[in-house]
Amino acid sequence: MLHTVNKSPWQTPNLDACLAHLGNERLLLIEDGVYAAVARSDAAGKLEAPARDGRVYALGPDLEARGIDTAQLAEGIEVVDYSGFVQLVAEHGPHQAWL
């Protein structure tokens, strides 16, 4: 299945709640959720295991809006555009949004 997180990891515990339920499923970071993907942040370490498996994605337009260059992302995190978001939902549904 596909999980999405749209809040900053410093603002809410939603990323932690999601990761506790992620298992071997996929995670897409959107909106303020993308801040967790910055390699030098103290949140990126939480994503290390699923990112290593290629199961963590970040939405490109939300990165661009926030001034985050893809070169700053933690290793293994894949950037997708809006059609990539749709494809993830279509291929890996159901979708759980951790709002």
Partner: peptide
């Protein structure tokens, strides 16, 4: 402070999500 520091980040382009780029 806290997430407020993100407001001052360089190279923000809010047009990418159809928002006002106020930085």
């Amino acid at each position: 402070l806290d997430d407020g520091v993100f407001q001052l980040r360089q190279d923000q382009n809010a047009k990418a999500i159809d928002m006002k780029n106020f930085a």
